[in-house]
Design a protein around this nucleic acid. Structure first.
Lengths: 132, 132
DNA sequence: TCTATCTGTCACTATTATAGTTACGGAAGG
DNA sequence: CCTTCCGTAACTATAATAGTGACAGATAGA
C-alpha cells in the first residue's frame, strides 16, 4: 500500500510489487484482492494495467488495511475448546473473549490514528536520514 | 492459571490441568515451565505434587502471563524481509516497527489492568448465571 | 483482429509452526 | 524401594502459511 501511495499516478503490477516485498506475484494478488474487496485499491487488466489506490493515502487508515486483510483474532484460546464439564473450562472462553476483545480494540484504536500517507512520510524521512 | 487460582491450596498435576484444557499433559508442562521461569508458578515432583501459583491471584496480571508465554510479536511483517534496494522496502521495516510497537503497547496496557483473580471472578459469576 | 500484457483464481507443492505422543531420567514422599 | 509426578528430549501428526505453475478472461495497442 505504501508502494502504491508513492506512485499513485501510475498503476503497479503484482510482479513489480512482489519484487519489493520479496515474495511471489500470486501472493501479492491474493492480498490486493482482499484490499480490493474492501474498496481500498483497484485493479486493471491488460497492458499498462496493475494496481492503484482507490482513495487518497491520507484517508486510508492502517485499521482499514488491517481489517481488510486479517480475519482472525490476534489473541485467542487453544484451538481445542476446553472441557465443558469443568467449572473453569466451561466458562472461561466467554470471559477471555471479553478481555481479549477489549485489548484488541485498544490496539485497533492506535491503528486508526495512522494513515498510509503517514507511513509513506516516515519511510521517506527515514530513507533521507540514512542517505546523509 | 485460573484453574490454579481456584484451588490454590492444593497443587494440580499436569494431567488434571490437561483434562480441563482438553490437551496433552506435556503441552501443559511446557507452558507451565515458561510460567515457572517467569516466577508465576511453582512445581513439586512426587506424590501429591503438581503446580501451584507462586503469588496471590490478585497480584498476577494478564500482562505478566502474556509476556511469559508469548515471545514473538503479534503484528509483524512478511517473514521474508523486503528488498533493501527498493526505497520503500528498504525503509518500511523500521517505520512499521514503531507503529506496531505502539499498537501492541496499547494492547498490553489493557492486559495490565486485569489479574488472574479478575478472570476467576468473572468465570465464577458466569457459571452461576448459567446455573440459574 | 491479433498479440502482448496483466489480473483473478485454481490446484498443487513446500515450508514452517503448532500440538500430540512416547519415552525416560530424576525428584519427592510414603 | 516403589509409586507418583516433573522436566525434557525426540519424534510424529496436523494445520497454517507461502511458493509455484497454469490458464481463462480482460485490456490496450499494433
Amino acid at each position: 500500500m505504501t508502494l502504491l501511495a508513492q506512485t499513485h499516478e501510475e498503476p503497479l503490477t503484482s510482479e513489480y510489487i512482489a519484487g519489493s516485498v520479496n515474495t511471489h506475484p500470486v501472493f501479492i494478488r491474493r492480498i490486493l484482492g482482499m484490499l480490493n474487496k474492501a474498496g481500498l485499491v483497484t485493479s486493471q487488466a491488460g497492458v499498462g494495467g496493475g494496481w492503484r489506490l482507490r482513495k487518497a493515502p491520507e484517508t486510508i487508515t492502517l485499521l482499514e488495511v488491517y481489517r481488510a486483510v486479517d480475519e482472525n483474532h490476534l489473541l485467542s484460546l487453544h484451538h481445542r475448546s476446553p472441557n465443558p464439564r469443568c467449572l473453569i473450562g466451561g466458562n472461561i472462553q466467554s470471559s477471555l473473549e471479553g478481555i481479549f476483545g477489549e485489548a484488541e480494540l485498544a490496539l485497533e484504536q492506535v491503528l486508526h490514528t495512522r494513515t498510509i500517507a503517514d507511513v509513506l512520510n516516515e519511510v521517506l524521512q527515514h530513507a533521507q536520514a540514512r542517505a546523509n
